[in-house]
Design a protein around this nucleic acid. Structure first.
Lengths: 238, 238
DNA sequence: CAATCCAATCTGGTCTGACCAGTTTGGCTC
DNA sequence: GAGCCAAACTGGTCAGACCAGATTGGATTG
């Protein structure tokens, strides 16, 4: 199961890191599962504990694992998210809300267009199920969760995992704002209606329509907060 | 200059990390500059060397610093780039070229539209200078560099640093492909002509035109390689 | 005097072994 | 059977040592 791969140009912790990455990507370790203890890993890989710790630190920094004192290192459920990276980096650089919003709108519109072009029967069915599920949500938190799921599913249907990750990152960075927005009275009904329009456009496999529906959705939701957005669609002239 | 900040819920390396981040973001340390040695830092902050090493490892992982054996840890010039993060993570997850290409096209088109809407006289002047500089480039490597600079300047003019970072990441991940493409005969002249069109559209502050010019540019450049792109612009119907 | 070379001394890389502080676990008590 | 407590885990931190690559400055040499 474990074997130490040695490359000349690589430090010991780096090679340990690669070993662990392989274990993760190969599926030997499953989401949420605990990794062997530092001492066990050190013994198994034939290196010292500090080297293991540095490798684990890298995994932690990249958001692949989470380490709990006295308990162990656990594989994160959501390996794909970039947010940890950004959160850590915010110390060095913070993004303005306006930028995030703009980025989100840009990405969502692109992604939904791809989704509309690539959706299949299964995808339509899944979207419909999610939509019905969201309608039943009573509390703001549950609604927001369903909202995330809806947007994420669209991104998955788009089949572009790079855009998916970017979008996920933006959304997670905007978590608080989303929570504020969703609590506004009447907001949920509006959001649901918009989601239905987006869903319909995707079902009709009409990228342009889907894009416009998404744009309208996001602009209406964040309308009160937008500080600037002079060129959202492609036909305006500054 | 240095002081150890202690928070209960934070580990020693984490607090060291924050300290160093502050030094970086405050500008006390400049790009390219060498950090104090591990032993010095340990002594200054009153912690052990392993703790310092873990903090430095985090900085390295985040791409903020670069550590050279026997020499020291240096602040990276390009602190904002995400690419290191991705490169490291590729061990756990790799993106397909098609996805990257798609993401790049999406992002570039959005960004250039914003740039066209927000450009000022200074920005136009800078673009022109870059363009003239690129025309003088003889070798493929230099041309590619100038190409990067042109696209990056557009992203900067767009004033959205989040999109800028994403785009930068995509571009760096596609570095090899770009190199291959730029070596094709006649490719450079075509690229230059397209760049001129984009430049003109930005100068006219016409986001739609800029977007179309950019789309044409990228699709023509990567045309031979594109595996899929059914919904690039906003008016097509799948 | 200038260029060269080499050794002292920096730097990071790694290991050992120890101790502290939380968490988990299993057996003991009630 | 439920609750509790201690032993045996786990990660967190430290000290000190040694190796290997990089740097530097003085001694050597042209």
């Amino acid at each position: 199961m474990f074997c130490r791969i040695e490359r000349d140009d690589m430090t010991v912790p780096d090679s340990v890191f690669e070993n662990l990455c392989e274990l993760i990507s190969s599926g030997t370790l499953e989401a949420g599962q605990r990794l062997p203890s530092e001492r066990q890993l050190a013994s198994l890989l034939g290196v010292s504990r500090p080297s293991i710790r540095e490798a684990l630190r890298t995994l932690d920094t990249l958001g692949l694992t989470q380490t709990r004192l006295g308990s162990g290192s656990y594989l994160r459920e959501n390996v794909a998210s970039l947010s940890h990276y950004f959160v850590r980096r915010q110390t060095a650089k913070a993004y303005e809300l306006g930028e995030l919003l703009e980025a989100r709108i840009s990405l969502e519109c692109e992604v939904v267009a791809f989704a509309a072009a690539r959706v299949d029967a299964e995808g339509k069915e899944a979207l419909k199920t999610l939509l019905e599920h969201q309608e039943e949500m009573e509390d703001a938190s549950g609604f927001l969760k369903a909202d995330f799921a809806f947007h994420e599913l669209i991104a998955r249907i788009s089949s572009n995992f790079f855009l998916l990750e970017m979008l996920k990152t933006v959304r997670e960075l905007m978590l608080e704002v989303n929570m504020d927005v969703i609590k506004r009275p009447g907001q949920r009904l509006v959001a649901l209606r918009h989601h239905h329009r987006i869903y319909e456009a995707i079902c009709e496999q009409d990228p342009g329509k889907a894009r416009r529906a998404m744009l309208k959705h996001l602009e209406s939701i964040f309308g009160g907060k937008k500080p600037r957005r002079p060129a959202a669609s492609s036909k305006k002239t500054g």
